[in-house]
Design a protein around this nucleic acid. Structure first.
Lengths: 140, 140
DNA sequence: ATGCCTGCAAACCGTTTGCATCCAC
DNA sequence: GTGGATGCAAACGGTTTGCAGGCAT
C-alpha cells in the first residue's frame, strides 16, 4: 500500500478529508531528502501549485506529525524542521552548532540509551524527535 | 574562588565590564534550580532591581553561554531555557513532549553515546546542550 | 447539505537590534 | 575621557489564529 493510500485511510478514520493541498505537501516531503523547514516546503509546494498558503502547509505538517509520518526537529535557530519517516531507514540527527551541518546517524546507539532511560527513569524516549547538538568533524 | 570572581576575571580578560545588571542575572541563576526561560529570569531579576531591561537579560545570557557557565536548551515550544552549570552535577534533560515536565538524568549513559558518535562520525557531542524529547512516566 | 479546509490577513511572542545615553574602567 | 553597556522602543521572523467562503464527503 502506498504512502498516499495509507494517508488517505488514516484521514478517513478520523473523519478528515483528502485535499489537493495535503497531497501536495506529502508529495513534496517524498521528494526531499533530509530535513526542511516549513518555508522551504512551502516554496516547493508553490512550484507545483501557486495557490497554496503557508498556513495550510503548517496545518498539514501538524497533521502529519500527529500521524507519526514526519519526524520533527526543533533547531537551535528557532526553526522547526520536518522529514518523512515512512519507508525510510530510522536515524537520528547530529546538528553542528557552529556551521549548522546535519549528519544522519544510525539509530542503534541511541536505542541503547532509550533502554537505559526507560529502565532508570520510566522515560520513553521519542526516537523520531531526536537531534543532538555538537561539533561536526570539520568544525572541531 | 567564587563564581562571581571567576566571572569577573573572565570579563576582564576580554576587556568587558562587570555591571550590576550582570551580577544580578548571575545571582538569580545561582538561586534557581532547573531550567528557566529568559522571561522568568527577567522577572526574578526585576524582583531585586526594577531598572533592568529584558534585552540586557538576553545579552547577559548570551555572554554566559559564550563563557560556558550556562547550559542552553531549545525547547519544543520555541523557548530557550537556561541553567547554571558551574559547580553543579552534570546532567541531561528529559523533556516530556506532552506535559512539558523536565527530568534531570544522569549524564553517564549519554557519555557512552558521545564516545560512540565520536568514533563513528567524528562528531563531538555537546553535553551541555542536550535535551531529549519523549514521554514522562505519568504521560506514558 | 454539512462541516471540514482553505486563503487571507492580522495577531502573536520570544528574541534581536538601533540608537542615544550612561557609567565602569 | 573612552568605549563598552544599558534602557527604550521598534523591528524581526517563524508560527498561530479568526474568519468568511469553498469544497470534499
Amino acid at each position: 500500500m502506498s504512502c498516499q493510500e495509507s494517508f488517505f485511510r488514516e484521514l478517513r478514520e478520523r473523519g478528515l478529508r483528502l485535499t489537493p493541498q495535503r497531497e501536495l505537501v506529502l508529495s513534496v516531503l517524498h521528494e526531499m531528502e533530509g530535513l526542511a523547514g516549513a518555508e522551504e516546503i512551502y516554496r516547493r509546494v508553490q512550484a507545483l501549485s501557486t495557490a497554496v498558503d503557508i498556513s495550510t502547509v503548517y496545518r498539514t505538517l501538524d497533521l502529519l506529525q500527529e500521524f507519526g509520518v514526519v519526524a520533527v526537529v526543533d533547531g537551535a535557530d528557532g526553526q522547526r524542521r520536518y522529514e518523512l519517516t515512512a519507508g525510510r531507514t530510522p536515524h537520528v540527527h547530529l546538528v553542528c552548532s557552529r556551521c549548522g551541518a546535519v549528519i544522519s546517524a544510525d539509530q542503534a546507539p541511541v536505542r541503547g540509551l532509550a533502554d537505559t532511560l526507560r529502565a532508570a527513569y520510566g522515560f520513553e524516549l521519542d526516537l523520531k524527535r531526536i537531534s543532538l547538538s555538537g561539533l561536526c568533524p570539520a568544525c572541531r
